[in-house]
């Protein structure tokens, strides 16, 4: 399906390139869009990522969330006592998340 998507969509670009006009080239035409102004500076500048801690949290909690699926999909076959360690895991996850959210709220340390 992925391959078919590529195979079906690449011709659209080729056809578009074939039938579209390509005339009157000038340097202004190929400038990056900045609302009619002449662009100042580089396009890829330093950009303040104010919410960087959330990306860090994602790296950890994405993996932890997927771990829960290994437990959830086998839950019907497991004895009830096997849920206790998972409760502990969830408690650690919850505590860690609360701490991370508290730290991410302290904007001045970032």
């Amino acid at each position: 399906m992925f391959a078919f998507g590529i195979a079906a969509m690449a011709p659209a670009l080729v056809i578009s390139r074939m039938i579209s006009p390509r005339k009157r080239s000038n340097p202004v035409k190929f400038l990056p869009m900045e609302c009619g102004q002449v662009p100042s500076g580089e396009g890829r500048t330093h950009f303040m990522m104010q919410y960087y801690p959330y990306i860090l949290m994602f790296v950890v909690f994405d993996v932890m969330a997927i771990f829960l699926y290994a437990w959830g999909s086998a839950l019907l076959e497991l004895p009830k006592s096997a849920t206790l360690p998972i409760m502990g895991f969830l408690a650690i996850m919850f505590g860690a998340m609360a701490f991370a959210l508290y730290q991410s709220g302290r904007r001045r340390i970032w």
Binding site: A12, L13, I15, S16, R17, I19, S20, P21, R22, P27, K29, F30, L31, P32, M33, G43
Partner: peptide
């Protein structure tokens, strides 16, 4: 309309 429009790519 979209398929017959010119594709402009920024210079850099």
């Amino acid at each position: 309309k979209l398929i017959s429009k010119e594709i402009i790519i920024p210079a850099k």
